[in-house]
Amino acid sequence: MKKIIFFALFYFCFSMVNAQKITAKYGIVELYEKFASAHVQPRNVGVWLPQNYSSKKKYAVLYMHDGQMLFDSTITFNKMEWGVDECLTKLIREGKIKNTIVVGIWNTQENRRQEYFPQKPYESLAKEDKEKVERSYVKSGKPKEFKPTSDDYLKFIVEELKPFIDNTYSTLQDKANTFIAGSSMGGLISIYAICEYPQIFGGAACLSTHWPGIFEAENNPVPESFYAYLKEKLPEPQTVKIYFDYGTVELDAMYPPLQAKVDEIMVSKGFTKVNWMTKEFKGENHSEKAWKKRLPIPMTFLLQN
């Protein structure tokens, strides 16, 4: 358990890099530095356009968290990337998915945890349980205090960023062509987004979802708050697609029993293989390298023609 906690604390401290050109292997990334918001701290936003991008065509839009980790390993803290441009380019060329652009929303190192932790489940916790969550985060050194601001983060995406993207690019603006995805705590905020805004997002991909919320497995009140929230707020199955997965080593070793309980909730709410998928990847860890290898699966599931 000590090794898992050490790994978790290291991994969750994403580094914010200085704004610079992002080089994709395929297509281009247009970088908007310090995108202003009335709801959250300014941050960079990178918009990936495929090689076939044309204003004469219309494109689905995939919003992804931890945007600095998606396209260019030369700017990431661990020299890894998701390889989103390679993955989507191949799938588009093969005709397996619809034409899509990707909006990479950079995290801010100091506020990442607060912005990605689902706010309403946190607020449902008893006072002593909230204090336990705060202690777990504060003892890692960041942040100095903990209070989720994920509702404001989602307002930023829905009320400010999406209108900008739809006005700037040739997009399909309806729910059926608007998706959201992330890993770890980015998985948490993605499932939270589709529950809070089912009229906006038609699909969510949640890789290595950090259901513990914190870094402790024993006497952890957080997962139960997530389960209760999902039972109440999951969208109608026929209106969305939801993807989950997990590895089995390092931090991901905490996830299988928690994901199993989420899967039970999905079944109870009427989700089937048509609109929901959960995948286990034995021997895979909690890293961009692992997510890159399996990215074609959730992308095909959400974006298929």
Score class of each variant (00 low, 15 high):
Lys289Asp: 15
Pro235His: 05
Tyr255Thr: 04
Ile189Met: 00
Phe77Lys: 02
His210Met: 02
Leu9His: 12
Ser183Phe: 03
Glu216Asp: 12
Phe12Val: 06
Ala193Cys: 05
Ala24Leu: 04
Ile92Cys: 08
Thr272Ala: 10
Asp66Gln: 03
Leu125Asn: 07
Tyr32Cys: 00
Leu9Thr: 10
Lys130Gln: 15
Ala181His: 03
Phe271Tyr: 15
Lys282Ala: 13
Leu70Pro: 02
Pro256Gln: 01
Glu123Asp: 14
Glu159Ile: 01
Met277Ile: 11
Gln20Thr: 11
Val103Asp: 13
Ser54Ile: 01
Lys120Cys: 03
Leu70Asn: 11
Cys195Ala: 09
Phe12Asn: 15
Gly203Pro: 05
Ser124Ala: 13
Gln173Asn: 14
Met80Tyr: 00
Pro298His: 06
Pro256Val: 03
Lys175Gln: 14
Val102Ala: 04
Ile92Glu: 14
Lys3Phe: 05
Ile157Phe: 00
Thr149Asp: 08
Phe146Val: 02
Phe7Leu: 13
His286Met: 10
Met69Tyr: 04
Glu218His: 13
Val133Glu: 08
His210Lys: 01
Phe201Lys: 08
Val45Arg: 05
Ile5Leu: 09
Lys231Tyr: 00
Val102Asp: 09
Leu9Ser: 08
His286Thr: 03
Lys289Asn: 12
Gln119Asn: 02
Lys292Ala: 13
Glu33Tyr: 11
Ser268Ala: 15
Val158Ala: 06
Met299Phe: 04
Lys132Met: 13
His286Ala: 06
Glu145Met: 03
Glu196Gln: 15
Asn99Cys: 04
Asn107Glu: 05
Ser150His: 02
Gly247Glu: 02
Val40Gly: 08
Ser55Asp: 14
Ser150Asp: 10
Phe12Cys: 01
Lys3Arg: 12
Val17Asn: 15
Asp245Val: 00
Pro163Ala: 00
Phe6Trp: 06
Phe146Leu: 05
Val133Met: 15
Val158Cys: 11
Pro212Tyr: 08
Ser170Lys: 06
Lys25Val: 05
Asn99Thr: 07
Ile97Cys: 08
Ile194Phe: 01
Phe179Pro: 09
Ile28Ser: 14
Met254Thr: 11
Glu86Leu: 07
Tyr122Gly: 02
Lys261Val: 11
Cys195Ile: 04
Trp291Thr: 00
Leu31Thr: 11
Ile165Ser: 06
Glu236Gln: 12
Leu230Thr: 07
Lys2Pro: 15
Lys21Gly: 03
